[in-house]
Design a protein around this nucleic acid. Structure first.
Lengths: 246, 246
DNA sequence: ACTTTAATCTCGTCATACGATATTATTGTT
DNA sequence: AACAATAATATCGTATGACGAGATTAAAGT
């Protein structure tokens, strides 16, 4: 476990807090910050799946009390990012291939719903936002880092979800995305990655974008199906190569 | 806040635990039991939406420590069953009509997915289970209590979800169902309930059942759309009558 | 009747403690 | 030396007490 960067210590530690600190307002409870921090670490893969996360370590690293840590752990457990076996403690949840598969299927369904809603509700304003985002994404896909690509992709879809006008749906997709995050990055960064995959992904996105412009719902949903199927296939392929990944 | 019934006190209190008690093993941590208890109370509507839930009360009622209570609260918050405003405390989450509407839309989508999967994976064994459940449900609809009807309905769909072979999907639908539970019971027990609604519901279910037998996916999904639309409409209608419900 | 002030409540966080189980180290035996 | 038995330690689950900060309610004063 690595030490927190200094700014985090400042943010997280209330005891030694300097009143003249830049981060003055403490609107967010400590646990919210700790939660964000840990969640991020897990999603990013800084903690490997299956790795144990001990209360003690967290207490020391974050400089907060056990109360806070335990509440955060409970939260992450409910979010299915970690599992906790009694008397042993939390560990980063291992997602089986089949589970990842299931999640992708559901996400495809929900994303289709979101796109449908977006098309139905679309206005000039929303279209402009989408257009801008798509342009950024296009640039990133050509020369950006994998991390950036993911970010842009999410932003693009984020706009769709936002203007689909269904908050619950957005939240749900977000949750599922977090859970399958590691697989997604695996798909994008793995050395054995199919080089043509990125091409197809760009093509799919472009087509989806076109379909939205044309308000062609059935076409749009079809494209999503194709894209997700592609992602699923690649994940399975990568899993077979990496026998150690589970 | 009403006091716990005696059996709950026995289950929850570890301090005064009699070793010769019938409930000997403590596989489930206290917090799991407390969580179940509270969750149930909220879903059943024993705590009204918007009602405050104070730590202190829970501690006294359940006879557990603040640690446990706080962790449970964090869990319920993550499950979106309660909200917590800082320095004020938890209260039962109020679900707006629009949110209920959103949830129903999503549930419809996911249920369609589940039914499709069920039809694709169906075997004689699964069909038999479904058949049995359907018969029970039919009986309940004719003369059972609203509570029983809901239970049977859930069981029927539960079988579909189970044998759809997608655990994540089951869990998701379950979560959403819990969240909209109060609306659903409102729809079934409200004095202004449309008397024909139950008839249509039975009809829809029967049709859905038939469609599954015929392996007619498109027909099945269409029926689900109809049923959910119906439920949504009724909720809206009830909301308009009960202006006080939010 | 209304504003201001004081008292009280409730939560957020920390610290400490102790039993139970799991894990690891130690010791003893073959 | 390998293995089994035992002891030491780590880690979690739970309980308890404490204190500040903000919210709520009661009291007081105008």
């Amino acid at each position: 476990m690595t030490r927190l960067k200094s700014n985090w210590i400042i943010i997280l530690s209330r005891k030694n807090e300097n009143k003249t600190s830049f981060i003055a307002r403490d609107a967010a409870p400590l646990r919210a910050q700790a939660h964000l921090y840990l969640r991020d670490k897990i999603i990013r893969g800084d903690y490997k799946p299956g790795a144990r996360i001990k209360e003690r370590e967290l207490i020391e690293t974050l400089g907060v009390s056990r109360t806070v840590i335990r509440e955060v752990i409970r939260q992450l457990e409910t979010e299915k990012l970690i599992t906790v076996e009694p008397q042993v403690g939390p560990r980063v949840r291992i997602m089986s291939a089949s589970e990842a598969y299931e999640i992708y299927l559901i996400r495809a369904t929900l994303e289709k719903l979101a796109v449908s809603l977006f098309i139905e509700n679309q206005s000039e304003k929303t279209l402009k936002k989408l257009k801008d985002s798509f342009r950024q994404l296009e640039t990133s896909l050509k020369k950006g880092s994998p991390d950036l690509i993911i970010k842009q992709k999410n932003k693009f879809f984020g706009i769709i979800y936002l203007y689909a006008g269904n908050q619950v749906l957005s939240g749900l997709i977000d949750t599922l995305t977090c859970q399958s995050w590691r697989w997604r990055t695996l798909g994008l960064t793995h050395p054995n990655r199919d080089p043509k995959r990125q091409q197809r992904s760009l093509k799919n996105l472009s087509n989806l974008y076109q379909a939205i412009l044309q308000k062609d719902i059935s076409k749009a949903t079809l494209i999503i199906d194709i894209e997700v199927k592609d992602a699923q296939d690649e994940i399975l392929r990568l899993i077979k190569i990496d026998t150690g990944v589970e």
